[in-house]
Design a protein around this nucleic acid. Sequence first.
DNA 1: GCACTTTGGCAACACTGTTGCCAAAGTGGC
DNA 2: GCCACTTTGGCAACAGTGTTGCCAAAGTGC
Lengths: 414, 414
Amino acid sequence: MSGASGPGANLTALRGHNAALVLRLLRDAGEDGISRPELAGRTGLTPQAVSKITARLRAEGLLAEAGQRASTGGKPPTALRLVPDARHAIGLQLDRDEVTAVLVDLAGTSVAARSAPFDFGAPAEEALAAATAEVRALLADAAAGGVVGGTAGGGIAAGAGSGIAAGGGTDVAAGGGIAAGGGTDVAAGAGSGLAAGGGLLGVGVAAPGPLDHGSGVLHRVTGFPQWDGFPLRDALAERLALPVVLDKDTNAAALGLVTSGTAESAAYLHLGTGLGAGLVLGGDVYRGARTDAGEFGHQVIQLDGPPCDCGNNGCLEALCLAAVARGDRTDAARLLGIGATNLVRLLDIDRVLLGGRMVLADPEPYVRGVATMIAEDSARASRPPVSVDVVERGERAVVEGAARLVLAPLFALG
Amino acid sequence: MSGASGPGANLTALRGHNAALVLRLLRDAGEDGISRPELAGRTGLTPQAVSKITARLRAEGLLAEAGQRASTGGKPPTALRLVPDARHAIGLQLDRDEVTAVLVDLAGTSVAARSAPFDFGAPAEEALAAATAEVRALLADAAAGGVVGGTAGGGIAAGAGSGIAAGGGTDVAAGGGIAAGGGTDVAAGAGSGLAAGGGLLGVGVAAPGPLDHGSGVLHRVTGFPQWDGFPLRDALAERLALPVVLDKDTNAAALGLVTSGTAESAAYLHLGTGLGAGLVLGGDVYRGARTDAGEFGHQVIQLDGPPCDCGNNGCLEALCLAAVARGDRTDAARLLGIGATNLVRLLDIDRVLLGGRMVLADPEPYVRGVATMIAEDSARASRPPVSVDVVERGERAVVEGAARLVLAPLFALG
DNA sequence: GCACTTTGGCAACACTGTTGCCAAAGTGGC
DNA sequence: GCCACTTTGGCAACAGTGTTGCCAAAGTGC
């Protein structure tokens, strides 16, 4: 993205950065909250700076007091906690045969969800209309249920959003996005009850790759040539009048890992119709130069193996799916384990999570098989153990991760 | 490192960051220099901010004017250029049978070099003494040659350094390191002609892995158990009274790529006694959670392949070294190409560079073989081409990269 | 010769986190 | 019960950042 040598930082960026840091700690602290001195200790900022920052955040409604903690020999500290309802984000997952939409709050908790049959092979405009309708229906559900905002509000935040969707890159100034929808007065005027009341930040879209996260354009999804070059992000942003962020489904799920675990580096392995990976490296989702990283399935693990659709021989994906097809889950797990071990050794990965339909249908053999293989290898190399689990929230991992694409900038993640 | 959720940024950090950005652009501009307006455009800072920053850098002697550019319809801009001699850094490479030391300037250019036989298998204290002696001899050479500073100076910057070696992590405040040795007056007093005159920043040490970059401790290097747990960084820092940074040889070479190329992501593949990789991801060296990433050679590429020392079967390293041993460079290149293709697909790598004794002895077949395999794969997946080359400066890539371990923080890299 | 553009510096400014100071509110020893 | 001590958290003054407004210098182009 940044064609130059990275962005220069100004005072606004500095404020955004520190505010995001504080917000992240508040989110991680959950219901119990966290005290100002502890925030200061964890961020390295002075207590006074933390006071200033939390005061600003409280003025924007993102923060609230959460009672007093026990004293440790002096004035008892006041716990502060995130107000999850202060903002919301939408996650939208476009799968081959299903569209799913969720509404999540600032803490990442799902407060409303819908799904419907979907034809990814339909003409683009048609599919787009179906996706848009799903989002509108979700918002209508939420408004009716009183989850978001007070007024029922006609339509979807018409007039808000304006098209901030241009973000997506590594724009530092975007850190100020916290103020989006915030401020002192209701900016959008009438008709935008949802955006104003519940602070609707935008829509995160997860789709099968390959695609370009930076520009929001789909590439040639295997078997669906009509999407090649389609500017899905901008098309959705225009129709919904909301900021939209597009990413691969695997990356969306990986983003969920950044939030939940404290792992420095993790890999989400998705075994569905294909085999892909979402990588978390150094605490952030790694997308690669052309946002095309994660082609985990097409690593060659058997030189003289059977041919794969991709043109190579002995790809992990081909071998693994073949094992699944013949019902040999043990062998599929073994193969997946070999690929995972390669990954762990190459990237010094802390944590591996498995997902995707094939795995979720019967997780146990996969988790056990992969865990065993990695553990044996780690023991031989006297490396610390690596945890292997099914991805949390299973089927929802991708769509909720998609919503976090929108939330991530608030916490200086992404 | 940062056990918390990342460091909070203060004004000092902000200044350091922007100064580093400007310095990086100046270094990349080389002899020709770069004008203030262009710096402003590239960094996103205002012209006035750039003026302030460049004024500070010039006061520290890091910058100089480099004549006037042609006017584009107004006052002709003044070109600014880095003053390479303003600071120097030492690179030290500890190989199995040789120790090499270089002195490089700010631009990364080597101004002095030495090498000597070395026994990595000797007792630690003995080897340490040999390495220390090599550094001292290098500095004596440089002083005699008048390369660094004016005075000949007895010994090595005694009294300077003090032990700032504690850095190494992701400490933001360390960005202010530019001032180290700088300032207005000669801080160290007598006897430290080198550190004062030539601004000796420290020593970057490259050693065979595995090791811990963060703590500067060696792990169990295959075949050399006496080094396991040895705090090499601190031991050298104490003996030399200079800041020391320790890293794997592959990472040191990879750091050189960050500097020279403009590649967002690159991989340095080192085929020597073993097969390892140094990874540049997102414009920075990627080391992994325990700074142990880059085990490229032990990816399994043939399920039923021959056993490897590591305990697995069909490791790339075992296959590749076997091919080399039987003189079949074509097959070795093909195998290396398969591993490289796996890497490119997984991490969306821009650029691949080959190095290490085996490759450097006869680079052509390796470069051609690897390039062909990656190109074929990229074409099939309609991905942009990936450049494959021998690493620049060949034998010197590692040791000069080691020196850049010290320089990197000045340019907000590392 | 004049209008215009670009460069680059000076001064005032808005805003950041920091330091110094102090009131509030607990704990623990006496 | 009293008092010394510690910790919290806010107010005010401060140092330092990049930014804005303004202007002189030095070119180009008509």
